[in-house]
Write a protein that binds this DNA or RNA. Structure first.
Lengths: 223, 223
DNA sequence: GCATCCATGTAACCAGTTACATGATTTG
DNA sequence: CAAATCATGTAACTGGTTACATGGATGC
């Protein structure tokens, strides 16, 4: 399976934390990206099908998380472990044989497999650093080793820095008899990229600190 | 023709300023968006074909701009009016009838028609304010009336403000036991949106000032 | 003379969308 | 009992991409 589809990265990343059914996955993907009008079912269900076909994911029946660590105070939170609970509570109707063969109309809870976890890491390691995929990768980068995570951030940083450089030359070419709005747009884009780079620099220095901290520990242990 | 395709907006916007051939259009679209790896020919040429079919655009032979206003100092600038000049200079081979009928391998220079200009304004007026289309619309918003331009900016602003609001509620739902990276990502997105809003506020107040200035003039003239 | 850029176009593919079909459960 | 929300899925379409085919002009 080729690694392109964003949606599969999102699915695996979310399932890695807990079992979920399609409908709930959709909502979580939406507010994961925060932005844009939510991913569509017409993309989601086929993606789940593909992942199931590739054995990266499989339908599960009962809950996986034994019990919520915190006692779930009645703060009205409908998300989180509650979803798994609901999936348990009002599960597929058992009357009139509705096994995984020909489904009635019940929710299908998916869990990630070992292959799925492996695939997730592969997708995260994929070198592409476009806007869309990078956000998703950051969202799940906790599943990468610190080293790979650092590389991810550095790749993105290089990408943005390159963009700034390219911008400069194209600006030279145009002279500065640019339209007012176009100029404002460019200026704003420029600032946005710089802001992104500053953010990445923060992430990068954190990673480096963590890495050298771990190295120190190792040194201590080894010596 | 339905108004969706971004690429057609870009083509019309660029042709509105000067006649260009496909290859040159591609480069200009690329550094217009600054970002991303350039639009592909496989999208560009069919789009030109569609626009030509819709009579929004037509193939022209000679140059349109009579002469560059500035004397073009030898600063090595290869873009700008120079492109039109080149198109003139080494145009389609005139030997062995190569009219607009069956082309050999020569550049085809396109110009915008009256319908095209009309279509351009329609596309700019389209209410969608997603990331991609909004940038393009700003790039060509000089072809809108001040009133429409102001509305464009305000629409986008409302969109972003709404996003911030939605974010707040989804954050409440999650509590704050969020992954470190996910939290950082969200925080950064939040800041980016605020930055965008601040930029828009600047554009909006400029537009309003211009509008009231024009109103004052009108008042003066009228009274 | 060969590589490289200029230039146009087509075909196959791709990741998504909208619209549709279907049905169970909850709530006013 | 009707409307809304939960839930799964398919088919048609869309706005692109990559890869391919073709060939002229320039530079080294």
């Amino acid at each position: 399976m080729r690694p392109h589809p964003m949606i599969e990265l999102a699915i695996l990343g979310l399932l890695r934390e807990q079992d979920l059914h399609g409908y709930e996955l959709r909502r979580r993907i939406s507010d994961l990206a925060g932005l844009k009008p939510a991913v569509s079912f017409g993309a989601l269900y086929p993606a789940l099908g593909r992942l199931e076909g590739a054995a990266a994911v499989k339908a599960v029946e009962a809950a996986t998380e034994p019990a919520p660590a915190v006692p779930l105070p009645p703060t009205g939170s409908l998300a989180g472990e509650a979803a798994a609970f609901l999936a348990r509570r009002r599960g597929p109707r058992r009357d009139r044989g509705a096994g995984p063969g020909r489904s009635g109309r019940a929710r299908k809870v998916y869990g990630i497999t070992d292959q799925g976890e492996q695939l997730l890491v592969e997708l995260l390691d994929d070198p592409a650093t476009d806007e869309r995929s990078f956000s998703l990768k950051v969202a799940f980068c906790r599943y990468l080793t610190p080293q790979r995570r650092l590389e991810l951030f550095e790749r993105r940083r290089a990408d943005l820095a390159g963009r700034l450089a390219g911008e400069r030359t194209s600006r030279r070419t145009m002279g500065d008899r640019l339209d007012l709005y176009l100029r404002s747009l460019r200026e704003h884009d420029h600032q946005t990229i710089q802001h992104d780079i500053a953010w990445l620099d923060g992430l990068i220095s954190n990673e480096r600190a963590a890495l050298s901290g771990a190295a120190d520990l190792e040194e201590d242990t080894t010596s």
